[in-house]
Nucleic acid binder design. Structure first.
Lengths: 199, 199
DNA sequence: TTGTTTTATCAACATCGTGTTGATAATATC
DNA sequence: GATATTATCAACACGATGTTGATAAAACAA
């Protein structure tokens, strides 16, 4: 237990993760070798294998922490404001926290979400959003008969759509504040794209 | 020009592409080697390099054809029914054709869209959908002032959402007919998830 | 058909990245 | 200060890559 707190281990792993993110940004995940990572981290290649099985393992471990943080962030925000109304006009705290959380790790999110060939990370974030949206829909409308499409499909529809807006935001280097993005996302999700929607 | 019609070339390339799709399905893109591909295709490894630069090149060439077909399919469908009404209740021909086109190449779509690490294919299909949706939104509402969010964002929001529904459909082995899926997709996109949407 | 061009085969080669090992040095922990 | 843990380094076998030159097979054009 206390072995994991050895400062050398913490330092080494952090250096490897930082090097990975930098290199993915510079040349893409595919082209990177373990040698590249350890060179950038100023570590010996053998040291890498003391901590990670291979390049993919390093990626997964790095992702895991980010996914955990996002999940906790969303769950906490739900607890914080249980009596929210998804049909309300002002952006709900969960939406704001979602964008805030992304912005706090924007370097990593940007690289992992916008670079091609980032195995599993995108779909894991999407899974987190699926849970988030499922809770939202269940809260507003628990009755299947009053949904226009199967719940299972609706949930994935919105999860992918929300994620795409986040990716757009990151690609554009976050031109709007989290609060503004939260409002924007709720508007298009609930009111649709057109003002004065005839429906 | 006529050189490209050499039946040996056509046959070889088709065998390599078929082998690629099979192997991605069986063991995932990452684990495949050029040797694996040529073994499955009963060809010599050197022959591979006469046609493709590397594994990624083969993947790109194979994708290109599919993307081209989908683009043409959508463009033709738009021409076919210029006077459509996106706010109409019955599924528009473009939506139906979209699902039909996917179902006609479902093996390849399923592998390329649902396997992880399929560089660029997913985003290229998304690009096609972006064009499709942009035309739709421009047709219904050319005025930026009457959109609830920037057009650029709305387009990507719906492109990602539509693609996710297609992926869901492929993952479930196409449990509904294209026509039904087209109606479902239009319902959630225009009316939203809730029956009697208060907006 | 014949002769020419193009394509596929095969073995072999150098190169590169991988994952591991054993000995040694450096650092943390108690 | 003694012990345990971690990092370093060189070296190794292995597997995949991309290329080459010679040869065989198939397509094409007259």
């Amino acid at each position: 237990m206390s072995r994991k707190l050895d400062p050398r281990v913490v330092r080494t792993r952090q250096m490897l993760r930082d090097a990975l993110v930098e290199l993915i940004h510079e040349q893409g995940y595919e082209k990177i070798t373990v040698q590249d990572i350890t060179s950038r981290a100023t570590l010996n290649r053998a040291t890498f294998y003391l901590h990670y099985r291979d390049k993919l393992d390093l990626l997964y471990q790095s992702s895991k922490e980010i996914v955990k943080d996002l999940t906790e962030c969303i769950d906490l925000s739900f607890e914080e404001d249980k009596e929210f109304d998804f049909l309300s006009d002002k952006p709900h705290i969960v939406f704001i926290r979602l964008f805030e959380q992304v912005s706090q790790n924007s370097n990593l999110y940007k690289v992992f979400l916008t670079e091609k060939n980032m195995p599993h990370f995108t779909s894991r974030i999407k899974d987190v959003l699926v849970d988030f949206i499922l809770k939202g829909i269940n809260h507003v409308q628990p009755d299947d008969q009053l949904l226009t499409v199967p719940r299972e499909i609706a949930v994935r529809y919105f999860a992918a759509a929300f994620l795409e807006v986040i990716v757009w935001w990151l690609e554009k280097d976050m031109p709007y504040a989290p609060k503004y993005m939260a409002g924007l996302l709720m508007r298009i999700a609930i009111k649709g794209p057109y003002v004065n929607n005839p429906f």
